[in-house]
Computed example of a mutant assay.
Amino acid sequence: MARPQRIVLVRHGESEGNTDETIYERVPDHALELTERGRKQAIAAGEELRAVLGAEPVQAYVSPYLRTRQTFELLALHRSSLRVMEEPRLREQDWGNLQDVEDIHRQRQARAAYGHFFYRFTQGESGADVYDRVGAFFETLHRNFERPDYPPNVVLVTHGLLMRLFCMRWFHWSVDEFEALSNPCNGESRTLLLGADGKYTMDRPFERWSWG
């Protein structure tokens, strides 16, 4: 089994939905684009990532949302050995169709009280639902690891909540531990590094919620 040396999780750059909540009433979530700031964040993330990866081969898995695809392109991981797969299971948590801003606020408050993992949006998913599809993606990922020519680097371009749930599943964190963590900022990454003992560790932790 050719287990990768690095598994890099990258959150997309700032999108239109991060700066204008009313856009969810007019534009599908999957079709939101990066803002100019988001493009700069993606370019900066690419510069950092290329400095670490050098010219090593890369297998990339990208959420099909427009903002994640744009982020991936701006990472500029150009190399002949690059393999790219669009992976729908890495998509954002579904809220369900076009949305009403007042309902978004109401449901976010309800989710904060109920818990991010178990709360299910009226027409969408719970965090637990996303966790389940992350688990299904793991089955594909581990099958791919069995290829003798599998690249030493994996890059996943995805969303903040999914990054936390990926690590929760990978490291067997409890629901309470997941709930205590906050999403990375737009354009941020976390890297899982393979150690000499055959176990992965994360290069830096997620920030924890501040209750003060």
Score class of each variant (00 low, 15 high):
56 E>D: 14
57 P>T: 04
59 Q>P: 11
62 V>G: 01
62 V>D: 01
66 L>H: 04
67 R>M: 08
68 T>Q: 05
70 Q>L: 12
71 T>D: 03
72 F>M: 11
73 E>T: 15
74 L>T: 03
74 L>E: 07
76 A>S: 11
78 H>Q: 14
79 R>Y: 10
79 R>A: 13
80 S>G: 13
84 V>F: 01
85 M>R: 06
87 E>W: 03
90 L>K: 02
94 D>N: 12
95 W>G: 01
96 G>A: 06
100 D>R: 12
101 V>I: 11
101 V>A: 14
102 E>R: 15
102 E>W: 08
110 A>N: 07
112 A>R: 11
114 Y>R: 14
115 G>W: 01
116 H>D: 06
117 F>S: 03
117 F>H: 11
120 R>W: 05
120 R>T: 12
121 F>R: 09
124 G>C: 09
124 G>L: 06
126 S>Q: 08
127 G>V: 03
128 A>L: 10
129 D>K: 03
131 Y>G: 00
134 V>L: 08
134 V>K: 05
134 V>E: 02
135 G>P: 11
135 G>M: 07
136 A>T: 15
136 A>E: 11
137 F>C: 06
138 F>K: 11
138 F>D: 08
139 E>S: 14
140 T>S: 14
140 T>L: 12
141 L>A: 01
142 H>Y: 15
142 H>V: 14
143 R>I: 04
143 R>E: 15
143 R>C: 10
149 D>P: 10
149 D>N: 11
149 D>G: 14
149 D>M: 10
152 P>V: 05
156 L>S: 01
156 L>K: 04
158 T>C: 10
158 T>Q: 00
159 H>E: 02
160 G>L: 07
161 L>H: 06
162 L>P: 02
162 L>K: 01
162 L>R: 00
164 R>H: 07
